[in-house]
């Protein structure tokens, strides 16, 4: 008798808990309309051109959190940790989760792990997620434009040692464009692998041709070490990489 009650209670709690989780995930992510503008990126994707017109676009106000990603893998089992082939994730995909459908446990430092930004996801998985929301990953130029920051105080994350726990999405103060949680982790962009091309395609775009030795001749702002670091970081990635520090947010055309 008690066992049955216990089981019922347990199931009720479980359902209730899941319901709460789904609530957190289901509230649609607020998107910010990033206004059109002209932007000078740290490294130009087009030799000879320094300034670029960025069209207005929608950007998630905060990175995708674990609860949302859980809902996604629940709906699309091929994206569960045990199902994704090595081609799409090189290992450590959602490594901090307890299982295909169970998040990390709460801890002293992290009371609500479901509200932390999801990390350890590959580009393929991030793309699939944004697709499923009828969105897309932001382009590199869009991301850099929306996240543009030169105040060294706000960029200290890049030079501080130790990764820090994944950011609780949507909590830290937003930037002037109303975007949260920038510069507390790395984020995927749609065209990350187009970073830094050589001028001469005959050379074969050797990965670091412009990057290596900093090629500060072509960098826009030599003081902005955070921008250097981000470009170097993106250039070192492969679509299957899953890193502790690397999450994402989605964008949408107007």
């Amino acid at each position: 008798m008690f066992r049955q009650v216990n089981r019922l209670v347990f199931q009720a709690v479980l359902i209730g808990g899941l319901g709460l989780l789904l609530q957190a995930a289901q509230a649609p992510v607020e998107m910010v309309k990033v206004p059109a503008g002209v932007f000078t990126p740290q490294f130009s994707p087009r030799p000879g051109q320094k300034d670029f017109q960025v069209k207005s676009f929608w950007l998630d106000a905060r990175p995708v959190n674990r609860a949302e990603f859980l809902e996604f893998v629940r709906k699309y089992p091929q994206w569960r940790r045990s199902q994704v082939p090595p081609l799409f994730q090189e290992g450590n995909y959602l490594a901090d989760w307890q299982g295909d459908l169970s998040l990390p446990l709460p801890s002293q430092e992290v009371k609500q792990p479901e509200l932390q930004a999801v990390t350890g996801v590959s580009w393929m998985a991030a793309r699939a997620y944004c697709d499923a929301q009828k969105k897309r990953l932001p382009k590199l130029l869009e991301w850099e434009y929306a996240a543009d920051e030169t105040d060294p105080e706000k960029l200290s994350w890049y030079s501080l040692v130790g990764i820090g726990i994944p950011v609780q999405a949507g909590v830290a103060a937003p930037n002037q464009k109303g975007i949260y949680d920038l510069h507390h982790m790395y984020e995927w962009v749609d065209d990350f692998n187009q970073v830094i091309m050589t001028n001469d395609s005959r050379e074969g775009a050797e990965k670091d041709n412009q990057l290596f030795c900093g090629n500060s001749g072509s960098a826009t702002d030599r003081m902005n070490y955070a921008a250097f670091t981000r470009y170097a970081f993106w250039s070192s990635l492969h679509p299957s990489y899953t890193l502790k520090n690397l999450g994402f947010r989605c964008a949408r055309d107007l």
């Binding site: 050797e206 990965k207 670091d208 041709n209 290596f212 670091t229 970081f233 250039s235 070192s236």
Partner: peptide, 24 residues
């Protein structure tokens, strides 16, 4: 936090190894 690579001045080759070792 950061990607890193290495340029060894003992290496004869592009970048002293830096190109070959950009590591996430």
């Amino acid at each position: 936090k950061s990607p890193h690579n290495i340029d060894l001045h003992a290496v004869t080759g592009p970048g002293g190894g830096a190109k070959a070792t950009m590591t996430a």
